[in-house]
Every structure is written in C-alpha cells, then in structure tokens.
Amino acid sequence: MNILEILSYGFIQRALLAGTLIAVLCSVLGVFLVLRRLSLIGDGLAHVTFGSTAIALAFKLYSAASLLVSLPVVLLASLGILKLTEKARLSGDAAIGIVSAVGISAGIMLASVGGGYNVDLLSYLFGNILSITYEEVLIAAGLFCVVMLLLGLFFNDLLAITFNEGLARVSGVRTNLINAVLVMLTALSVVLAMKLVGIMLISSLLILPAVSALQLARSFKACIALAALQGCCSVVAGIFVSFLTNLPTSATIVMLNLLFFGASCGLRRLLGAKSSS
C-alpha cells in the first residue's frame, strides 16, 4: 500500500489535518500545564464533560448541540479547579481529583434519575480520529487559531506565572487573569477535541509531548517547539502506522508518544554522559 493511496481516502486527509492541529495545540498547552503541575486536568475535565453530556442528552441535545451545555459547565469546572488550588490551598492533583469525581458521579446520578436516554451515552461521548467530518476540521482549525493566538499574546505572561507566580505578580502580571486564560483554553480544547478525537488522545497529548520536550529542551521556546513537533509527528506517523499494521489509530498514536518519550530520556542520558566526560 503506497502513501498516495493512503492519502486518497478523505477520512485519512481529515484525520491528518484535524489531528495535527489538535496535537500541536494540546502539546503546547501541555508544557504549561505539566510545569504548573496540572498534568491531569485533561482527564478531569473529560469527566466533567461526561456529566454535562448526560444533562445535554436528558434535554435531547445530541452531538454539536450538547456543546451548549458542556462548554459552559466545563469552563466553570476549570475555574473551579483553579479556585480550589488558590483558596483551599490544595495541590493541583487533589483539586483535579475532586472536580473530576464530582463530574463523573453527577453524570451517573443524572443518568439513573433521568430514567435512561434515547441513545447510549458512552458511545456519544467520545469521538474517533478516523471519523472527523469536514465541518469538524474547520472547528479544529478555528480552535487552533484561537488557542494559538491567545497563547501568543500572553506568551511572556504565561512563562512568567509558570516560572514563579509571586515573581510574576511583582512584574505586574495579572496572575489571576493569566491562570484563568490557561485553564479556560484547556477546557475549550478538551471539550471540542474530545468530541473529535476522543479523550485518550487528548489526555496523552497534553502530557507526553511536554515531558519528552522537558528532557531535551535547551530553552523555553525550544521546549514549546519540541513538544509541538512531537505531537505533530506522532499523529502523522500514528495514522500511517495504524494503516500499515492494522492497529487502532488512537492507541498507536499514544504508543508512539511513549516511544518518543523513551527516546528523549535515552538521548538526554547520552548527551549528559558526553558533556560530563
């Protein structure tokens, strides 16, 4: 099977396009989230999306219309995580754990109180990178532009709060605003991208490219670039490998990211040994 033939399928083209856009934005967000110790926020917000989708289905809002409910709920949940870390002095993982447990149990309660649905909730919750529509490619592109534009505008402020929040405040950075921007961009990406490519891909793309880049990066900008590069390469390679080996696509992409992470660790050791000798 040659590459041109693989590329002749429309669903592959759309997977490549939307997949790389989502991979790049998740990887870049991931660098900030991992350094702020909010790595699991993707999983947490996915659980909240589950709960809010249960509400949406109870009102007979399917697919795109369910966003009318999930988007505001998940944005609020992301701010809730932030407030818990600030006001209740909880660590990020505990705050995420609370919000995610509340999200999933609210969903389960609603599902049983509501007396069932017209469809199977779980099957509507997660997208699949191979079933992206043309409109969803546009959504991914729009999301990419919004997230990248805001990350670009606030880049130095984000770097400052990620390095040290106290120092950032003394440099005139409005830390509450910037924190809110970061988690709300994450929430927006999780809700939209989950419908497109599924949660497994989102949560791994928020973590693995960032931690690999942290192994090798020689500057913050390089770290962002390396993470984006890994995210992008893993999706492209994952789709082709899945084609050639007949393995599930999302799982293949996650495994490739793990492989890249292993390689980064190995490379760091190698470089470390060379520079110290």
Partner: peptide
C-alpha cells in the same frame, strides 16, 4: 523558587524582569 527542571535559559529568566515595563501584549 526554582523548579530544577524548568526549561528556561538565563537570558529568558532575566528578560521576565522587563515585563513590568510593558503593557499588553508584552512582547520583547
């Protein structure tokens, strides 16, 4: 203060001190 794995260079860290002189969007 320091996260030992924070991937910022000396120049990047020092540059952050200039943010207080800038207004949105704070570009260098």
């Amino acid at each position: 203060l320091l996260n030992p794995v924070f991937p910022a260079t000396v120049a990047e860290v020092v540059g952050l001190g200039l943010l207080s002189l800038k207004s949105f969007p704070r570009r260098f």
